[in-house]
Design a protein around this nucleic acid. Structure first.
Lengths: 213, 213
DNA sequence: CCGATAAAGTACCGTACGGTACGGTTCCGC
DNA sequence: GCGGAACCGTACCGTACGGTACTTTATCGG
């Protein structure tokens, strides 16, 4: 037996192209539009190949999540000295990136898919999404937290708890509203700025340059 | 044409019983378990009646949301003088109630249903859920905000914005995680306490009795 | 040049669902 | 007692999907 090695890109280029088309179908019309026949037709492949590659429909869905996660790479910026303004800037960039990711149509489609599957027992899709899709951005935020504390710019007891506070301030109920189909999206930059300002009031050490809009 | 009057309970008792059974099916097995045949069998009614009462399947889903919303009644506590400790207490109760509602199995099932339907055009289910399900609790929170400001205990420019901050602090990503099927739920009371403490740091006027765990 | 492997395309099968139609039963107004 | 309305139970229909089998085509090692 051969386990998936990290250098083995999990799928062949052909399979990646099929998964890309699957994501396109999912984004365009939701889960109902993602049928095996439709995907085979759209991707110019045979249903038999789909079942040979991914096992069954659930395997295809899991492969789509893994494929999408493999595409996302966070910048993981981590330069030298960290000043208060630099930390604020990094936090705001993080907030904008987070909102951008969450409001992306592929992300929304995959989250809707996983939420829809969450009722069935043994879904694993939700866990997969949380693990693959969030770990990257979570690690980036936790890194930012720790760097801020090490530089004497942030104070908190638990980095994870502080991160959840930041997350809540940034996202609030926007994610669920978007998942429910609400189109009107507030300005990401403005929302991130506000959230970071509040976060720094809670967990920052200096109070200068406060009250930005 | 006859509009729905508030005293007209929207549905007959028999229909309410059927909707109750429909919610039960939805909670137990997700959307896939909610078939017209299955509901007719479980509720001892005929499919023909279902279609006569609710039009089609979407009408049934909308009726389920309306029915569930009609059951939820927030206490809308609003006594006399408001002190700092009383405001904090009310806010914490609100936070606990909010988390309790969001983590309820019926709420989760309906939200999953609406999210799953959100991809299809003309869903209206998501809007319905937000309107019917959230308006009550939102109004209660906004009322609390305004009362706090009128009593000189809170400061903010926009009550809606302040409420969203409170919401984010309380809920963070818990709602989405639960929608995705994550079972482990933190302690509601502890989470509410923490969130309210942070909220009062941001928008409260006095800083005494701070730092409770 | 040849055998083999992979994959496309198509046809097929079983099932299950949404929606409709029909016969039988209960209940209510008259 | 009677006619009709509401409703239950069941059978039925068309469709569409997940999954499988088969035929044909292409690619590639020897």
């Amino acid at each position: 037996m051969s386990v998936q090695l990290p250098d083995m890109p999990e799928f062949t280029p052909r399979q990646n192209a099929v998964l890309e088309q699957a994501l396109k179908l999912l984004v365009s019309g939701g889960e109902k539009a993602l049928t095996t026949s439709g995907l085979a037709r759209a991707a110019n492949c045979s249903k038999e190949s789909l079942y040979k590659w991914f096992g069954d429909r659930d395997g295809l869905l899991a492969a789509m999540i893994a494929y999408q996660a493999s595409k996302v790479r966070t910048a993981e910026r981590s330069g030298g000295r960290l000043t208060a303004d630099l930390l604020r800037e990094h936090l705001e960039v993080f907030g904008r990136d987070l909102l951008e990711v969450l409001s992306g149509d592929v992300s929304l489609a995959l989250n809707r898919l996983a939420v829809g599957q969450a009722s069935r027992e043994g879904s694993k899709l939700g866990t997969l999404l949380i693990e693959h899709g969030r770990r990257q951005i979570d690690r980036r935020a936790i890194g930012l937290m720790d760097a801020g504390r090490r530089a004497g710019l942030l104070r908190f007891e638990d980095a994870d708890s502080a991160y959840h506070t930041l997350y809540g301030l940034i996202v609030s109920d926007l994610h669920v509203r978007m998942l429910l189909g609400e189109p009107g999206l507030k300005d990401n930059a403005r929302q991130a700025k506000k959230a970071v300002a509040a976060f720094l009031v809670l967990h920052g050490l200096d109070t200068n340059s406060e009250g930005g809009n």
